[in-house]
Design a binder for these strands. Structure first.
Length: 724
RNA sequence: GCUGCUGUAGCUCAGUGGUAGAGCGCCUCCUUGGUAAGGAGGAGGUCAUGGGUUCAAGCCCCAUCAGCAGCUCCA
């Protein structure tokens, strides 16, 4: 006999080999009907799975359980695959898993699928669902299965099978085996019947590499989703609409916050006045906070000599994602080429290409000829000589990071341990040549301004400095009300060679970060292999008001650049010591941060951040003069104010101000002019009634300085009355 | 970078080989009004760019540039 333990603790007895479905039927016919899969001892399997052993734990999964939904999504992918194969018989299926929020199926198909095809695909899927066909699993010994797959000739499925574990391979038939119904190599599990795949929708189609490998052929990835019922599908679609409605590219265009001109360049943001003011306010807030924490503000240029980045390691390590260097001369260009060749060689023997280039240069330049290029010299020596020649003429790089410049500021003075920590902050513009497919809007750009800072401190000061950075990050997140955030600790992958510096330094840095984060009480996760090439880091990940996560600031510990640049300070023992650096940004980049804020607030910025805080709307020509006076006084009180003295009617003016998401609309007519008041309406449509102008100015000033803690509505006022 | 889709007025978008369109915005005039659209008129376009096919191209083909989605990458 088999003992089956159910989730409520009940234990039922059945014959060994009974199917999970039969057990469920004995418990509840309704539950058995609703089950899309079962969980047997923590493993999700088909409801037809036969149970063996002295005792098993069994739980039915319905489509409302997250794991059941995942099974339904996987099954729905099969239904979609069948639909595709029916509509386009030449379709070759590759891989179709469930994913967050849905599923996809990668297919090879000479017809390019477009959204116009979706309705047909969905109609065919609906047909398959209506047929209420069973998902039937059968298994074949590996050799036999491989023979069958080779006979069918789908290279993707053969590949999948070769990657699968186990002595047998499983197939799922949608319908009866042996009939012409759809069949697919698949690990499962699946729902019992095609009618149980939920409320589905084909969402989009895009290219995807086989195995995510750019060298592999590009397939068509058809995305779909399915939910337990129509209502939750609609809710999901509404959420997507909401995200689209908040898209910062759309809102940025509508509200005139920023623009991108192809003539200036892809990924290069032009901040229009209304976007720039938001950034300006954020920068001011942070600068004040930084100074209070002992930071010193610096400015550095947008470019630096290549040799600076050779020392830092940024060049040519990230050459692929940098704008090409600006060479001072052809000589510099060629010497840099030689340097790159020698660097790539990393050998005691110069390559033939290297020697050819050297000889060519030696013929033209005396110092190069005199310097010579011993072909059996170690690469280090060859590199050193080339850098000597490059001292005359070199190239410049648009700076990809601010740290080398800040290091040069640190280096320009001798430092005692009494001076440390030195904390240099800059809103520093950097440039990275991101792949064209990665660029878009403000959040993914090629030129951006980091709210960057570098802390130079003693090893003993490190934990305290990390903690301060973490506190500043909290300040920034809470400043704009992103109160739901977590921390990601990014560590080195010990098996990778992309990192510079000694394992000992890495251990020190990783320990310092981990213990600080642990001690801070923040929620955090550790991720191996996500560190920067010079050190481990912690990233702040915030959740916006519709639940999306965004990576913002980062704090990175660095023992390596101080070594590369031979940074020192004099200790209490009068000996030279090496400082530790902390790189940190809080907003991340101003572009990205403001982009995220646009989406978070859906363009309706709180009063203290709103590009336009107030719009004065005159009722008629008779009140134009008074409106102008109100506008002037608002401006004089430093409110960001607009005046609508057009010939439109008040309804149209209110509508336009509302669409422009101006927080306060001041309606002024003859009555207000007579009483020296303004009639206040919000962009949400609330009418706050009449305020004297000084009352309104004082209340809005309080709202601004308190950043919304003291909102205007709290002030005493008369309720809205209709007049006419 | 790769694959696909898209590119028409300042913005959003119609326009399936035969005279370049709408709404919003803008300008002018009329209207003088009370909290989400008053009325009329007008200006504004080498249909992204460059080639090609055709008697004829916004439309078909090729290339380039740009945008979008996904993949890949990301100090």
């Amino acid at each position: 006999m088999l003992k089956v333990r159910l989730p409520d603790g009940q234990v039922v007895e059945h014959a060994d080999g009974v199917s999970a479905l039969e057990v469920l039927r004995a418990v509840s016919a309704a539950l058995a009907r609703r089950a899309v899969a079962v969980k047997v001892n923590d493993r999700v399997v088909d409801v037809h799975t036969r149970l063996t052993g002295p005792q098993v734990e069994l739980r039915a999964l319905t489509i409302n359980d997250p794991e059941g939904l995942e099974v339904a999504r996987h099954s729905c992918a099969h239904v979609m695959a069948e639909a595709l194969c029916t509509l386009w018989p030449q379709t070759k299926l590759a891989y179709g898993p469930p994913v967050d929020n849905g599923f996809y199926y990668d297919v090879e198909l000479d017809h390019n699928l477009t959204p116009e095809d979706f309705a047909r695909i969905e109609a065919k899927m609906a047909e398959i669902v209506r047929e209420d066909r069973p998902f039937r699993r059968y298994e074949l010994p590996r050799a036999e299965a491989m023979k069958k797959l080779h006979a069918e000739g789908n290279p993707f499925k053969i590949d999948n099978a070769e990657r699968a574990d186990g002595d047998t391979l499983s197939f799922y038939v949608t319908g009866e085996p042996g009939t012409s119904h759809f069949e697919d190599l698949c690990r499962g599990p699946h729902v019992p019947s095609t009618k149980q795949v939920g409320a589905f929708k084909v969402m989009q189609v895009a290219g995807a590499y086989w195995h995510g490998d750019a060298a592999q052929p590009m397939l068509q990835r058809v995305y779909g989703t399915t939910f337990p019922d129509k209502k939750s599908l609609d809710a999901y679609l509404a959420q997507l609409e909401e995200a689209k409605r908040r898209d910062h590219r759309r809102i940025g265009q509508e509200l005139g916050l920023f623009t991108i001109s192809p003539l200036v360049g892809t990924g290069l943001v032009l901040w229009k006045p209304k976007g720039a003011i938001i950034r300006h306010i954020l920068e001011e807030q942070l600068r004040t906070e930084l100074v209070a924490h002992g930071y010193q503000v610096v400015y550095t240029p947008h470019i630096g000599r290549l040799d600076l980045y050779r020392t830092s390691g940024h060049f040519p390590y990230y050459k692929e994602s940098q704008y090409p260097p600006l060479y001072e001369s052809d000589r510099a260009r060629e010497l840099n080429r030689l340097w790159e060749l020698a660097r790539a060689a990393r050998d005691d023997q110069a390559t033939a290409e290297e020697l050819d280039l050297f000889n060519s240069l030696a013929q033209r330049y005396d110092d190069v000829r005199r310097g010579g290029y011993p072909q059996d010299a170690p690469a280090e020596e060859r590199l050193r000589r080339i850098r000597t020649w490059l001292e005359q003429e070199d190239g410049y790089l648009l700076k990809p990071m601010n740290c080398p410049h800040h290091i040069q500021i640190f280096c320009s003075d001798a430092h005692s341990y009494r001076d440390l920590p030195v904390k240099l902050a800059e809103f520093g513009q950097v440039y990275r040549y991101e792949q064209s497919g990665e660029v878009g809007g403000m959040t993914r750009v090629r030129g951006f301004c980091q709210d960057d800072a570098h802390v130079f401190c003693t090893p003993e000061q490190l934990p305290g400095e990390i903690l301060e950075c973490v506190d500043l990050s909290k300040f920034v997140l809470e400043l704009i009300g992103l109160n739901d955030y977590r921390v990601r600790v990014a560590l080195r992958d010990p098996d990778s060679d992309k990192y510079i510096g000694s394992p000992e330094n890495w251990r020190l840095a990783e320990d310092a970060l981990r213990s600080t984060v642990h001690g801070s009480g923040l929620k955090y996760t550790e991720e191996v292999g996500e560190a920067a090439f010079y050190g481990p880091k912690i990233d702040f990940v915030a959740r916006d008001c519709i639940g999306r996560e965004w990576q913002l600031g980062t704090v990175q510990v660095d023992y390596n650049l101080p070594e590369r640049f031979a940074l020192t300070y004099v200790g209490a023992d009068n000996a030279e010591h090496r400082p530790v650096m902390v790189h940190r940004t809080l907003f991340g980049s101003m572009e990205r941060f403001v982009g995220i804020l646009i989406e978070h607030f859906a363009g309706a910025f709180p009063l203290w951040l709103a590009p336009v805080q107030v719009r004065v709307c005159s009722i008629s020509e008779k009140s134009k003069t008074y409106a102008q006076r109100v506008y002037d006084l608002c401006r004089a009180a430093t409110l960001r104010c607009e005046l609508d003295n057009s010939d439109e009617r008040i309804g149209a003016k209110v509508r336009l101000a509302t669409l422009a998401k101006v927080p306060y609309i001041l309606v002024v007519g003859e009555m207000e002019a007579a009483n020296n008041t303004v009639n206040v309406r919000t962009r949400e449509g609330k009418q706050y009634g009449d305020f004297t102008l000084p009352e309104f100015l004082a209340a809005s000033a309080r709202e601004i300085t308190s950043r919304g803690q003291e909102a205007l509505a709290g002030a005493g006022q008369t309720p809205a009355v209709s007049r006419g």
